[in-house]
Amino acid sequence: MKYVAIIRQVPDGESKIKVDGGRVNLEGATLILDQMDEYAVEQIIRLKEAHGGEAVVVAFGPERTEEAMRTALAMGADRGVLITAEGYVDPVTQAGALAKVLTEEAPDVVFTGGQQADWDSQALGAAVAEALGWPSVTWTTAFELEDGHAKATHDLDEGAEVVRVALPAIFTTQQGLNEPRYPTLPGIMKAKKKEIKKIDAAELGVSGSKVEILEQQIMELERKQKIIDGTKEPAAAAAEIIKLLHEEAKVL
């Protein structure tokens, strides 16, 4: 069997982001393997450990994505394929290029992050699946292989459900799916020698993007920060806060 994780490199949620001239500037930001994609990498390594086969990481992104890909290889993935494109490319266009690579790789199971920590997009997994004519399952919290099918539990808007899916198929991750391992030092050393094949997105027919980002600005709401000390008289503090919510904020 062959398993693929589609990964991305994103700024760490803990690091400050800045905007210059209406554009997010990632200079100085810590860039990491997207935490939602870590679950995907962990899952394909576990599948390989349990059932044998090959675990491959695939990405669509700028050259620097190689760093995140090395992290995935250090965790235990076997090799990588990186489709390179600088700047923003929408998920539908990306899906077309990724589908070409996946058609060639012919995996049985594909995992990718449930939401991207930079574009806040949830579309990529389902879009790639559609481009391939494969089924997809989003927000997967449990997964097992079962006679040529997969049985997966995934979250809906309300509650969850268990589905049986014909393979090949694409699954997007949710917290709870697994606990991603940290790369070990020997893993990091080995990862340096693992193969990363780079393909220019243009060679896969990508020319531009259907969606263009025009302007970005930091958006943090001003908060009133009216803080009441309720350590001595909790009941009085509770009465005061409910009064403020009712009379001042008018939300109760």
Binding site: P11, G13, I17, V19, V24, D90, A117, D118, W119, D120, K210, V211, E212, I213, L214, E215, Q216, Q217, I218, M219, E220
Partner: peptide
């Protein structure tokens, strides 16, 4: 318009 970067950035997009 939409949020991005974990809800910390407001961005304007154009689509075809």
């Amino acid at each position: 318009t939409k949020y991005s970067f974990l809800n910390r950035v407001l961005e304007k997009q154009a689509g075809t």
